[in-house]
Amino acid sequence: MWSLPKGHIEQGETAEEAAVREVAEETGIRGRVLAVLGAIDYWFVAEDRRVHKTVHHFLLEAVGGELSDEDVEVTEVAWVPLGELDGLLAYVDERRLVRKAVERVRAPSETSEPA
């Protein structure tokens, strides 16, 4: 079951810093935030109690590192073309965020000068 990297925000850390750290920990890839994609809120049951979780997602650009699945929480990591993620990810909300990322990557830069 494929999903995007995610984790908790540590004390003193911003959501952006947590995203960069979690991606590095789970995949071995160092990245920098390009854009905010949105947040996913959901509930689950753990140890007989109901837990609410909000996951903030960002579009990152790889700036270094090597792909690795050494994190014990991760079974496998892979580079996957953005266009193929929609058919691979297990969760509907994550597929929606990937479509938003694809639109963002394909859109002309808002800062570029007209020709």
Rank of each mutant, 00 (worst) to 15 (best):
T14S: 15
L37F: 02
E25V: 04
V23R: 07
D41W: 04
G38T: 07
E26T: 00
E26P: 03
I29F: 02
T14K: 07
V36C: 03
V33R: 01
I9Q: 15
A18F: 11
V20S: 02
V33M: 04
G28R: 00
T27M: 04
E22G: 00
G38R: 13
G12R: 08
W43T: 14
E13T: 00
E10K: 15
V20A: 08
E17N: 07
A35N: 11
Y42E: 14
G31T: 12
A19G: 12
A15P: 00
W43Y: 03
V20G: 01
A24D: 12
E25R: 13
L34N: 03
V36A: 09
G12I: 07
G28L: 00
G38W: 02
G31A: 12
I9G: 02
I40R: 06
V23T: 07
E17Y: 06
A35T: 08
L34T: 04
A24E: 15
T27Y: 02
D41N: 13
A18W: 03
R21I: 15
I9A: 08
Y42P: 03
G12N: 09
E10M: 13
A18P: 08
I40K: 03
G38S: 03
R32C: 00
D41F: 04
E13P: 02
W43D: 10
V20N: 01
E25C: 00
G12H: 09
D41I: 00
L34M: 15
E17G: 05
G28Q: 05
R32Q: 12
I29D: 06
R30Y: 08
L34I: 12
A19V: 12
E25Q: 06
A24L: 11
V36F: 15
E17P: 10
T27L: 09
D41L: 08
E17S: 11
I29V: 14
T14D: 10
L37P: 07
T27P: 02
Q11T: 10
G31C: 13
E17I: 01
I9N: 09
G31S: 14
A24F: 13
Y42S: 10
A39V: 13
R30M: 01
A15D: 11
R21G: 04
D41S: 13
G28D: 10
Q11V: 09
I29L: 15
I29W: 06
A15Y: 08
V20M: 11
E16I: 03
V36P: 15
E26K: 15
I9M: 10
T14L: 02
Q11C: 02
I9E: 09
E22C: 05
D41Q: 09
G28K: 02
W43A: 09
Q11Y: 10
R32S: 07
A35Y: 04
W43P: 00
A18S: 14
E22K: 09
E13K: 13
I40V: 15
G31E: 05
G38D: 07
G28E: 11
D41P: 05
A35W: 09
R32M: 05
A19H: 10
Q11K: 11
V20H: 01
E13G: 08
A15F: 11
G31I: 05
V23F: 10
R30G: 00
T27D: 08
T14V: 09
E16H: 01
